[in-house]
């Protein structure tokens, strides 16, 4: 995986549930067809109420109308990111939209597993609340080996919680690649 992840921040509140990440009515599209799967990027985070979309100001849709990728590739969340349903379509949709990493205080278990085991994005935890310090549009870099997040726009650097055991699966690119590498499956 890349040693430095770069991108612009999209800032959200606490308890961003999977219905906000990808509303249930959109779960019908193919996840393998290269054209059809773009729908997931188009509707990524479309369930977030507009006043809370892109904090602190809000009113900023994650994906512009008619597009399927976002100008933002690092999400700054609060606590309990990805709560709700088990739909893997959620981290998948964010991946299609171009998200590389999320930095949040905590995650719901299934969303966290799906992000890692599916190899869709890196779910970083942070000991410090950051969604009131970073603004949507700020330029960010994540140093993967040093576990730090730097806000290039303000010059501030924050510590990320090391991924621990999960880092091996992240590095491998998902549970299947990890299992093959470790000869758990053929």
């Amino acid at each position: 995986m890349e040693k430095i992840l770069e991108g612009c921040a999209y800032v959200l509140g606490n308890n961003i549930d999977t219905d906000q990440i990808i509303p249930a009515e959109h779960l019908v599209y193919s996840l393998s067809d290269p054209e059809e799967k773009k729908k997931y990027g188009e509707f990524a985070l479309s369930g977030v109420p507009i006043v809370q979309a892109g904090l602190p100001e809000g009113q900023k849709p994650f994906v512009n109308e008619g597009e399927h990728t976002s100008e933002f590739s690092i999400i700054i969340g609060g606590s309990n990111f990805g709560c709700g349903s088990s739909r893997e379509h959620a981290p998948f949709a964010l991946n299609v939209a171009g998200v590389k990493a999320i930095v949040s205080e905590s995650y719901a278990r299934i969303f966290y597993r799906n992000s890692v085991d599916g190899g869709f994005l890196v779910p970083y935890e942070t000991p410090e609340k950051l969604n009131d310090k970073i603004k949507t549009g700020d330029k960010l870099t994540i140093n993967v080996s040093e576990n730090t997040l730097t806000n290039v726009t303000t010059g501030e650097t924050y510590a990320l919680t090391p991924l621990g055991d999960v880092f091996d699966i992240v590095k491998a690119g998902g549970i299947f690649k990890y299992a093959r590498k470790n000869e758990l499956i053929a």
């Binding site: 996840l31 088990s86 739909r87 893997e88 799906n114 085991d117 599916g118 549970i175 299947f176 299992a179």
Partner: peptide
């Protein structure tokens, strides 16, 4: 418990 598609496929 619940899991996503990749875990279910595994």
């Amino acid at each position: 418990t619940g899991v996503g598609n990749t875990d279910a496929a595994f």
